[in-house]
Design a protein around this nucleic acid. Sequence first.
DNA 1: GCAAAAGTGTTGTAGTTACACCCATGC
DNA 2: GCATGGGTGTAACTACAACACTTTTGC
Lengths: 229, 229
Amino acid sequence: MQYDKYHNYKRFVSVDCVIFGYEQERLKLLVFKRAIEPAKGKWSLIGGWVKEEESVEDAARRVLHDITGLKDVFLEQVQTFSKPQRDPGGNVLTIAFYAMIKVEKHSNELINEFGAQWISLPELPPLIFDHDQMVQRALEKLRLKASYEMIGRQLLPEKFTITNLRNLYSEIFQKQFDPGNFRKKVLSLKILHRLDEKDMSESRKGAFYYKFRDIEEVEFVDPIFKRSI
Amino acid sequence: MQYDKYHNYKRFVSVDCVIFGYEQERLKLLVFKRAIEPAKGKWSLIGGWVKEEESVEDAARRVLHDITGLKDVFLEQVQTFSKPQRDPGGNVLTIAFYAMIKVEKHSNELINEFGAQWISLPELPPLIFDHDQMVQRALEKLRLKASYEMIGRQLLPEKFTITNLRNLYSEIFQKQFDPGNFRKKVLSLKILHRLDEKDMSESRKGAFYYKFRDIEEVEFVDPIFKRSI
DNA sequence: GCAAAAGTGTTGTAGTTACACCCATGC
DNA sequence: GCATGGGTGTAACTACAACACTTTTGC
């Protein structure tokens, strides 16, 4: 290979995935008992080696598909972590990604098979290596995204109430949003479609279910908060 | 090495730098005639191989220092590019960075030695491989940053007029800013310090020079535009 | 009828835009 | 004295926060 004269050592290349989910009104992370040495059995993000003929995006998609069986998962690069000593097992450079998935949509069996667990952020145990840092940066990216556009399409179930959506935002930003103002804001964006069905479990009056409109229907998506939150 | 069983091929790891500068009231990029095959002599970003004992940030800093002689340059990860075929010379994964430097501050000799050239964005020739994409993503990141905080500290000379700063913003966002409103906004942030000296070259009245206050003096930095630009 | 969440309306304010207008000075 | 960019003032507008108020319905 013609670059060998410039680069004569081996660097392992991997991907790690910060997987966000929303379950029982809590924002959660999918974490795993690590399967290989070193640090086998410790809590970590799920990762995988990047194969020779793959891009890092392909690798992350493959890892996610292997675990959840899902295709077309939302996926975005967070950052590359490359301190030579970050992994005691070798000189591993890793590209961190974050993903959003619907918790109910994939089989729990597959997840249990991998020693995985959905854990809410405040209850998260310390993770191996620099994985805590990856979570932190992923969360920052998620917040940035959520302040630019209304997210939830990838996290919430098909039908949900405005209160569900507001609560998701409360979880993400760790702050309360005024119910009336939040409702008005969301509806003004015209990205939701009201169903003729109510969720009666949370109140006597019942709350209408909504679903996200198909992307093709949405002509123009406003930034969700025009002023910084 | 214990990971060899999982990862049995060689991936070259490099960094590429999108270097922004501001010269003669134009936002410019430092581009280079590529020194090695393939594509030797074609326009490209400056890059370098990541050494075994380096993080990618260290590598990018080293590359920048080698070219400009500057230390403590502003540097931020843009994104990792990893399509297996992106570089015809081998399977090279590259981490793109962007940097901001003061054009006048480093010797032009060094730059000429490397076949480098400052070129404004509209005049940029096509670059090799996926370097155009890197420039595009770097510019997006720069815009995002510039809308969150007042940049210019790393790009403008020590002393500058508000008009210089406004023009920098015009270049970055490719739109005009109202002179009065921009001035009021900038001054309200209290991050500038007015000098007792005027630039008489642009108008009869003359415009006061300003400089950025030391970071330690600035107690709290507001987001520069609270609404999206 | 009352509790409790869903949903609507109103008012105030800060951040911003648009634009009028004054200022200083070299020619 | 006037043209030119520098610099100030102001009125209108918008997004948003705060919060009062109405609605619905099971108990």
